[in-house]
Amino acid sequence: MSSAAVRALRVGERALLVELAGCEETEAFHAELLRRRAAGALPAVREIVPAARTVLLDGVADPDRLAAELARWTVGPLPARVGGAIEIPVRYDGPDLVEVAALWGVSVEAAVRIHTETEFRVAFCGFAPGFGYLTGLDERYAVPRRATPRTAVPAGSVALAGPYTGVYPRSSPGGWQLIGTTDVVLWDTGREPAALLAPGARVRFTVAGSTTGTRCAAEGSTTRGGR
């Protein structure tokens, strides 16, 4: 990957927004930043916030100098996979699962298979503490947000929007398409680390217990009004 892809924009007095060509370049650049920080080869930065196609460096003493330095970087490839992916068991019982399968043009069983056979990566976090934007689904499986957001999406809801999968760490309003539920705790400030999913982590969703996605989906659609 060439350093020519790096473009750093000034953000106020103390920050830089580094723009990259795409999702993979962003992940690689973020990984490079963390490598250099760990090696003590990065000036002090208060926050490093990756996003879809950018990385924000906030709390930088001399942003212009750092921008000049970044332009000379050669960014290494994404780090090799270390260890296994985080597994998240899901009951595929979301009220929007049937609609998502229809948008994908496949059966509900096939939709569940596609979701569980994909290896995801936490591209970035936001929206709420511990909420990760997970990439990995093929772009043809991108889905729109719901036209009318729900006023309360239950904690543990596994949901899709655009190219992303996410899991709601706590109950909140939300416009994502709900395909399932997990009992895994995404965010717990009494735990170290508090967030289960940090940028760069790899994730796999599995079918929880022995229930099948189809039966749960049917149950989900009958209880929709109760949530």
């Binding site: 106020g12 103390r14 920050a15 927004l17 990756p50 996003a51 950018t54 924000l56 936001g126």
Partner: peptide
Amino acid sequence: LASEGMVLGA
């Protein structure tokens, strides 16, 4: 715009 990091005072 794709989601991006936000700073105080933005």
